[in-house]
Design a protein around this nucleic acid. Structure first.
Length: 184
DNA sequence: AAGAGTATCAACCGCTAAGCG
DNA sequence: TCGCTTAGCGGTTGATACTCT
């Protein structure tokens, strides 16, 4: 998975899944210096990633206020409603769902909602989809992460706590290590 | 038990907008 | 005003886990 792409000059750019080490570097750097100017940040932190990649990783995954785990029925309803109003404006929709990322909502919509509506259901049918989706979700709430990747299994329920502590410089380091230890 | 098919999600790509000199 | 850089967005892809036959 250590593919190296774009080897113009002597700059190597890593792609693909992030390693624990990279996560820690990014988290610690942002904790100490703050985020923004992602290309500079990536270089200064010593990460062989594009600024774009760092930004995405931070916003969708490492940010302390990112909520992980199943989308609740309430959130589903809200997503339906907002998508109805705004269409595929995922970032805008995400702003109305604290802790949820545009990527997460987009994935949810494409894999759950769109799939259902493809199966002969109109957009009105999306509401009826919600009802069985909701019951399915409620079951998933009990049987946490059964249908998710092993990676995700470590992030649901109890492990969310690791992200819910206030984000002070450096003090979430252990949580991330714990998270990774549980994931791998 | 094994292979095929399906579902899920992290990450990348391409494009546009915004900011700045 | 123009051109460059960076941020942000939405669409798409690839890897992996899960389910079915």
């Amino acid at each position: 998975m250590d593919r190296k792409v774009g080897t113009n000059e002597d700059v190597e750019v890593r792609k693909g899944p992030w390693t624990m080490e990279e996560d820690l570097i990014l988290i610690n750097y942002i904790a100490n210096h703050g985020d923004g100017v992602w290309n500079t940040l990536a270089r200064s932190a010593g990460l062989k990633r594009t600024g774009k990649s760092c930004r995405l990783r931070w916003l969708n995954y490492l940010r302390p206020d990112v909520r992980r785990g199943n989308i609740t029925p309430e959130e589903q309803l809200l997503i339906m409603e907002l998508h109805d109003r705004w269409g595929n404006r995922w970032s805008k929709i995400a702003k109305e769902l604290p802790g949820r990322t545009d990527n997460e909502i987009k994935n949810f919509w494409r894999t759950r909602v769109q799939k259902k509506s493809k199966n002969g259901e109109s957009s009105e049918g999306q509401i009826s989809m919600l009802s069985d989706e909701t019951s399915a979700m409620q079951m998933e709430d009990v049987d946490v992460g059964v249908s998710q990747t092993s990676y995700d299994q470590g992030q649901t329920s109890n492990n969310l706590d690791a992200f819910e502590i206030p984000f002070e410089p450096g003090d979430n380091l252990l949580s991330v290590e714990e998270l990774w230890a549980m994931q791998y």
